[in-house]
Amino acid sequence: MASQNLQSVPPELSPDEREREQAGQAYFDRIISEDSRIEPRDWMPEAYRKTLLRQISQHAHSEIIGMQPEANWITRAPSLKRKAILMAKVQDEAGHGLYLYSAAETLGQSRDKMMDDLIAGKARYSSIFNYPAISWADMGAIGWLVDGAAICNQVPLCRASYGPYGRAMVRICKEESFHQRQGFEILLELSNGTEAQKQMAQDAVNRWYAPALMMFGPPDDDSPNSKQSMAWNIKRFSNDELRSRFVGMMVEQVKVLGLTLPDDQVRFNEETKKWEHGPLDWNEFKDVLAGRGPCNAQRLERRREAHDDGAWVREAAAEYARKQAEKEYAA
């Protein structure tokens, strides 16, 4: 996909700067049209930098806030094996948040600032984590549906045009391969278990299905930034395209689970060769995004609390490092 002069050069520059900007833009355009990678110190259009910073930091925030609904069940996991798996998974999410914050930092924003924005409610994260995880089966549904949708989104991002983002995604995709499987197996075990367990599983799938489909973002005709992101090779497939692929995969997998999707309008459209699903409640999506979900306040408060409670520890370690450096200098 070629992209020429996506960003016009600002007019108030001196002739020298202007020339440099134009050279930078030309180089950037060539890299993008060759489907190569932009690296941190390359010239890049301001809008490209901003788009990436927004997307990567939101992605990082989602990993960090996304730890909470699952951490909610670590202490109550019903077997020690499940406890270990869940703990490792939630811990991985902290790691993924870290990889992504690092990638975002290469764009010139400190992690501190990103964290401050998150805590101040100024940053977004994946809306789905504002729903409560109320039963053990939710650990299965989150793994299977939420991580499943995330992986669909993330696999193409391994080829995002911004090098550090793509590299972080490669690492994340590799590690996440177990996340969806463990979720699937939790549901499978429940589905093959007692009647109460099976009901628990179906109930969780019913609650997480629609929010998972909405994780791909608004429909293409209502997604103003998508086109630009695709022209920049950040996004590789449209929201609807990915959503349709995801539905197609879930339709098959849910059969293995012996459960059903809460959507009687799922079908394969022979004409378009795409999977279709029933209508989604985009008003609810916007409500939750705007802070009116069941857990928005709770999630932010929990992050704020951890950050505030940890302030004295971070300060102590920084102070200790300063003192040690002074000692070394004096010696």
Binding site: L98, Y99, S102, E105, R111, R167, A168, R171, R314, A317, A318, Y320, A321, Q324
Partner: peptide, 11 residues
């Protein structure tokens, strides 16, 4: 492999 934050080299 990537980067991280830490107060000093040991950490």
């Amino acid at each position: 492999a990537g980067s991280l934050h830490a107060p000093d080299a040991a950490m």
